[in-house]
């Protein structure tokens, strides 16, 4: 492994300015994260279809490749080669930018997740706030998609999602205050290091509130009101097709990855696990996939909520629970 000192020396001897070095490191890291995202999305979509099939006593994709493993590659090629339909009355810039904004918001949020000791793109002191704040830009992307499409279903879907995401941000942010209180830091790697006991045992209420609010934040069943097929055709991405639609799909699965990674970091001990230190990323991966499996399990088991039920749950159940969690944590820490 190269250390930063060796890199600096290399740059100095060869006359490379430091900012070139910085920029190329940043570029390489973001490319690496992008590659992980792309691979992760392919694995997740395949997993989703197989899990769904399993819950419904079907086989799922079986024909392309061994047990349908190449199905997703075929699907991606199909989506790329599809016609790009542009609605007549759509707002050109807003319509084009919406998938990008959503994708970027989900993607940039991954940058602070530590997957192992010192294995993190940017270990910010405020990593936790960052991980909560950046994905909230994605709401703007959904609203842009709804407005730009000039379609009533898209509009309704995006308005629902805006209301839902803004509401669930509150209990989600409050539910992790207990974690910050115990760990004494908002730095994600410090939170993982502080977990000699997983916080899911110390913060059971916080964990449940966080998980439910995360499901609502990433618009998964039972909170997929923004895209209810039965009443809104497809919600905010009704008018999107081909490549642009694929970007929405991408953003959704990356957001799911980020949410489950954050759950693992905050409550499930991050990279901690038995065995030597180099197994840390593997443990992290296993835990992330376990959380994702639970999310898929929820999706294919539970029916969808009505919009008023969603709002009631957010404001009348989760928010008081999150506040209660802070109170209990505070009292126990004082005693």
């Amino acid at each position: 492994m190269l250390t930063s000192g060796q890199l600096l020396e290399f740059a100095n001897t060869n006359g490379i300015p430091i900012w070139v070095l910085d920029a190329s490191i940043a570029l390489l890291l973001s490319l690496a994260v992008f590659a992980i995202c792309g691979l992760g999305v392919i694995v997740l979509v395949y997993m989703e279809r197989k899990v769904a099939a399993d819950f419904q006593l079907r086989w799922g994709p079986m024909h392309v490749g061994w047990r349908g493993t190449l199905q997703l590659i075929a699907d991606a090629i199909k989506l790329i080669s599809k016609e790009d339909i542009f609605p007549k009355n759509a707002d050109p810039w807003i319509f084009r930018l919406a998938p990008t904004v959503m994708f970027l918001a989900a993607f940039v949020g991954l940058m602070v997740i530590p997957i192992g000791p010192k294995l993190v793109v940017q270990d910010l002191n405020i990593g936790l706030i960052y991980a909560l704040a950046i994905p909230s830009i994605g709401v703007a992307g959904i609203i842009m998609a709804g407005f730009g499409s000039y379609n009533k279903y898209a509009m309704l879907g995006s308005m629902r999602s805006a209301a839902q995401m803004v509401s669930y941000e509150v209990p989600r942010a409050l539910s992790i205050i207990g974690v910050v209180m115990i760990a004494g830091s908002a730095k994600l790697s410090a939170i993982v290091n502080a977990q000699s006991v997983w916080y899911v045992f110390l913060q059971p209420i916080g964990f449940v509130v966080f998980l439910v609010a995360s499901l609502a934040e990433i618009n998964r069943v039972p909170f997929d009101l923004p895209e209810t097929e039965s009443e809104l055709v497809n919600g905010y991405h009704t008018e999107y097709s081909g490549m642009r639609f694929m970007f929405f799909l991408f953003a959704e699965y990356i957001a799911m990855m980020a949410a489950s990674a954050l759950t693992v970091v905050l409550f499930l001990g991050g990279w901690h696990g038995p065995g030597p230190a180099y197994l840390a990323p593997l443990w992290f991966l296993i835990k992330v996939f376990a959380v994702i499996y639970v999310m898929m399990w929820v999706r294919w088991t539970l029916p969808r909520f009505r919009i008023d039920q969603v709002m009631d749950l957010g404001w009348k159940v989760l928010l008081p629970l999150a506040l209660l969690n802070i109170l209990i944590t505070g009292i126990i820490m004082l005693l």
Partner: peptide, 11 residues
């Protein structure tokens, strides 16, 4: 501002 105010504004 971006996650809260702008989203509320767009809403």
């Amino acid at each position: 501002y971006v996650g809260g105010v702008i989203v509320m504004l767009l809403f």
